[in-house]
């Protein structure tokens, strides 16, 4: 499928820019909103690839539900105080980390640029999907047949995450000690 290079570079450029903002901005709310924008850009790329269902889900689930939760949590725990003092890390470490990241970037660019091999198209061509009833039907049928195990496993993973969150957040530890710790920190 042909995708328009202008929009591809627009969306991926914006995604990279917002991803950088997510990491570099000190204010958690700014970071969270930058992340929302990253998800929107990804949704644009998915839509260009013909995966309209994934694009819609990306916006509904990630940019919508999950990010709202993120921002709620940030507001609730009042985390807009920068917890990480960037000036504390030494200049040497920053230099080494930056240099190594550039090396990694360069090697990835080189590797992807040199990748000339043609991957044969799989069974999921646009025509075949149209014939089988469209994206949504194909995805849902696969979810409950070929990809049943990962699908069910994800539900166990979510259950474990819920229980873990309850175990960590439930207030029944000796309160005095926690209060003292917090007092020292502020």
């Amino acid at each position: 499928m042909e995708i328009s290079p202008i929009f591809f570079y627009l969306f991926s450029g914006l995604a990279i820019a917002f991803a950088l903002m997510t990491v570099l901005k000190k204010n958690p709310v700014t970071s969270a909103f930058s992340l929302v924008m990253v998800f929107f850009c990804f949704a644009g790329i998915y839509a260009m690839l013909g995966a309209h269902l994934v694009a819609a889900l990306q916006i509904l689930v990630y940019a919508g539900a999950i990010m709202v939760l993120f921002i709620f949590v940030i507001m609730l725990v009042n985390a807009d105080i920068p917890s990480l003092d960037l000036a504390r890390s030494s200049l040497f470490l920053k230099f080494v980390a930056g240099a190594l990241s550039l090396v990694l970037l360069a090697s990835l660019v080189w590797v992807f640029h040199g990748f000339k091999q043609v991957i044969p198209a799989g069974p999921f061509t646009v025509a075949a999907i149209e014939k089988a009833g469209g994206n949504t039907q194909v995805v849902s049928e696969m979810l409950f047949s070929s990809y049943l195990l990962p699908f069910e496993l994800t539900s166990i993973l979510l259950l474990a995450a819920i229980i873990g969150a309850v175990a960590l957040a439930k207030r029944q530890a000796p309160k005095s000690k926690l209060a003292i710790d917090r007092g020292v920190k502020r």
Binding site: P150, L153, T154, L157, A167, A173, P174, L178
Partner: peptide
């Protein structure tokens, strides 16, 4: 036998253990 299953299983293991590591909540 599948990279997706492998990743989800790895996360299931790790996520549970992250919480277990922090289970003594009163201890910094």
């Amino acid at each position: 036998l599948d990279l997706i299953v492998l990743f989800i299983a790895l996360e299931l293991m790790s996520l549970s253990v992250y919480v277990l590591v922090g289970f003594r909540r009163a201890d910094r």
